[in-house]
Amino acid sequence: MFEVRIHSRGGEGGVTAARLLAIAAIRDGKYASACPFYGAERRGAPVVSFVRIDDRPVRVYSQIRTPDLVVVLDASLVGVVDVLSGLKAGGTILINSAHTREFAGYRTCSVDLTGIALRENLIMAGSPILDTSVLGALARIGIISQNSAKKAITEVFTDERNVRAADAAYREVVI
């Protein structure tokens, strides 16, 4: 089972990113589940979402403690929450950042999702949309296929710019 933990702030699309990742994995023919950890969070507060991908139905409902991959949609969370908590040795961290970052002992991937969203003018209620483009980066890292990433995005969103943003993230992610 491959376990993903997504860090974001309320309103940044972490829950939707988890949902899209689960859909893409299912379109790849795998089993998946996605769940946010619901608390009393409000807009702007740190939130985590979980995705599990497996070759058999997922039966686990408890929170992910030792993820294989951590996605950080908001780099300002680094230092605010322990984004590396429980990340398996040699695990991967994908971070939304304009410059490349290093987390010692982990495979670090950086991509400027915010920059891509601004370029594509993917902005909702004043915030850049990150939850669709991140699928492109996840496809490049090899979690899901690029085809299924696109499928998942178009199943949920009609705006073509979301797919273009994901393509851009696929190209631009620095591994």
Binding site: A18, R19, A22, I26, Y31, A32, S33, A34, C35, P36, Y38, P57, V58, Y61
Partner: peptide
Amino acid sequence: LDGFLLSHDMQP
């Protein structure tokens, strides 16, 4: 169905 655990869990 269990609150959040099942009500909000996304599955096939």
